[in-house]
Simulated scan of single mutants.
Amino acid sequence: MALVPMTLRGAQKLRDELDELKNEQRPKIIKAIAEARAHGDLKENAEYHAARDQQGFCEGRIQEIEAKLSNAQIIDVSKLNQDGRVVFGTTVTILNLDTEEEQTYQLVGDDEADFKIGRISVNSPIARGLIGKSEGDEITIQTPGGKVDVEILSVKYLTE
């Protein structure tokens, strides 16, 4: 399986979720199954079946997170060669040359992406258009909505 790029923050977020699933959710589900089992007939015991479904979801998510972490290539943005080029993890401010609108994005892994807070997947059209470019470059990015002309105003190597 290929390595998956991930920021330090993204890896920590997954570790925190894994810890919560293993040490809080899993014991609660096991207790709920035991309590439902005590009610008798399991065929028509909705609480038991609901708890078993919840257990399946929880165990599946634990496996998914463990697989992602085992294949993670954790990148500390502050330790990158800070030569002004756009790479995974950098925070980029661009100016849309048509609308004069400024936007700031951090290029992150797929699991960390959240467009509402300015974190875009390194695999998104915008990020792919920015990778390898430098501050001051004017480029045309092909997006699902059409071509967009932008200027890169700044490239920062921030950890948050």
Rank of each mutant, 00 (worst) to 15 (best):
K31N: 15
K43M: 12
L42I: 13
A50T: 14
A46E: 13
A46D: 12
Q12E: 15
G40V: 06
K13F: 09
A11V: 06
Y48C: 08
E24F: 09
N23L: 02
Y48A: 10
Q12G: 10
L21R: 02
K13C: 10
L18T: 08
E44W: 12
D41R: 06
F57A: 11
E59H: 00
H49P: 01
A50S: 14
N45S: 06
P27Q: 02
F57K: 13
D41P: 08
N23W: 02
I30S: 03
L18G: 05
K28C: 05
H49G: 11
F57V: 15
I33G: 06
A36Q: 02
K43S: 13
I29F: 05
D16K: 15
D41I: 07
Q54G: 10
G60C: 03
E44V: 07
R15D: 14
R26I: 01
A32P: 06
D19T: 04
P27L: 06
E35G: 01
A50G: 13
Q55P: 00
N23P: 01
L18C: 07
L42W: 08
H49V: 03
Y48R: 08
Q25S: 11
I33N: 06
C58Y: 01
H49F: 10
E59N: 04
E35V: 07
I30Y: 04
D53F: 10
A38Q: 12
L42H: 08
D19G: 09
N23Q: 05
I62E: 00
Q12V: 06
G40E: 10
E24C: 02
R26C: 00
G56P: 01
I29D: 00
L42D: 06
R61E: 07
F57G: 14
D16P: 04
D16T: 08
A50Y: 04
Q55V: 02
I33K: 04
A32Q: 10
E44I: 06
K13H: 09
A38F: 04
A36T: 03
R61C: 00
E35Q: 09
H49S: 13
I62M: 02
E35D: 14
G10M: 06
L14H: 08
R61P: 00
Q55I: 01
E35M: 11
R15Y: 10
K13D: 14
G40Q: 10
Y48T: 09
A51Q: 01
R37C: 02
K13M: 11
A50L: 13
R61T: 01
D41N: 15
H49W: 15
I33C: 02
L18E: 09
G60R: 07
R37A: 13
E47L: 13
K13Y: 12
A46R: 11
I29N: 01
G60Q: 03
K31T: 11
G10E: 08
K22T: 04
K22S: 06
L18S: 04
A36V: 04
N23A: 12
I29G: 01
P27N: 07
L14T: 02
E44K: 14
Q25I: 05
D19F: 09
L18R: 09
K31G: 12
C58E: 02
G40H: 11
